[in-house]
Design a protein around this nucleic acid. Structure first.
Lengths: 116, 116
DNA sequence: TTGACGCATACCCATATAGGTATATGATGA
DNA sequence: TCATCATATACCTATATGGGTATGCGTCAA
């Protein structure tokens, strides 16, 4: 009787990056590996919070981690973002080629609505 | 003291497209406007469900709607997806240029982990 | 005006978070 | 072995959903 409330963030890259903090983490990792504590500090959030977000990112494969002495360094593995980039890219024609037409179309919709 | 559980889907495009059904809707709308009932049918879900997803998409601006007689036609306005496309594009170098290096790096991480 | 049709909402539920705090785990160094 | 540092987890709370069902509302046709 599983009454799904929402797809688990851990199951999908789209969900993983839906959280602003996690997107911030990915951006921070673009410049290189970082230990959890440093990420937590840069995010301005408690360490446990950062660890939890990192866990989600790890489970969807957007980050990789390795131990380094007492620390655990997290590194970016952005390959999973490619899927999102390509999916959104599938709509590119709707914001480029057909922009004028689309804008006109949207204006029409707005007018039609105001006319109610 | 608002204890945010999660950013509202209605406030952000990233959240809006985190839901599979909503992504399906956007894909369906690529071929043109559609009345709610038809979308619900194609999604294989009750009409109220489709309406709710459409509402979220409307609130983040990914779809526009207009009345047409007794029906309400929903149309795609993919411009908001551009932001997502560009954000993910900011990581492109990590899955193209540096692929070999990255893959090697990931392998190292895995080995390091197995070596524990 | 009335009845049917197409949607949007109101509710009710169970679940999945995001956060914060306290605590268990692991690893390092004296 | 013991104290300490760096993380990961366990809990607990308030919310935000997604889904299903019943129902309100506006529009159109007879």
């Amino acid at each position: 009787m599983t009454v799904m409330a929402r797809a688990a963030t851990t199951s999908d890259v789209f969900n993983a990056i839906a959280e602003p903090r996690r997107r911030e983490i990915l951006v921070l990792l673009r410049t290189g590996e970082r230990p959890v504590a440093q990420l937590a500090q840069q995010l301005g959030m408690p360490q446990p919070g950062a660890s939890k977000h990192l866990r989600v990112l790890r489970e969807v494969g957007l980050v990789q981690d390795r131990k380094s002495g007492k620390q655990r360094l997290y590194g970016l593995d952005a390959r999973g973002l490619r899927r999102v980039h390509e999916w959104t890219g599938g709509f590119e024609q709707f914001w480029n080629e057909g922009f004028d037409r689309l804008d006109e179309y949207v204006q029409d919709l707005k007018q039609a609505r105001q006319a109610d």
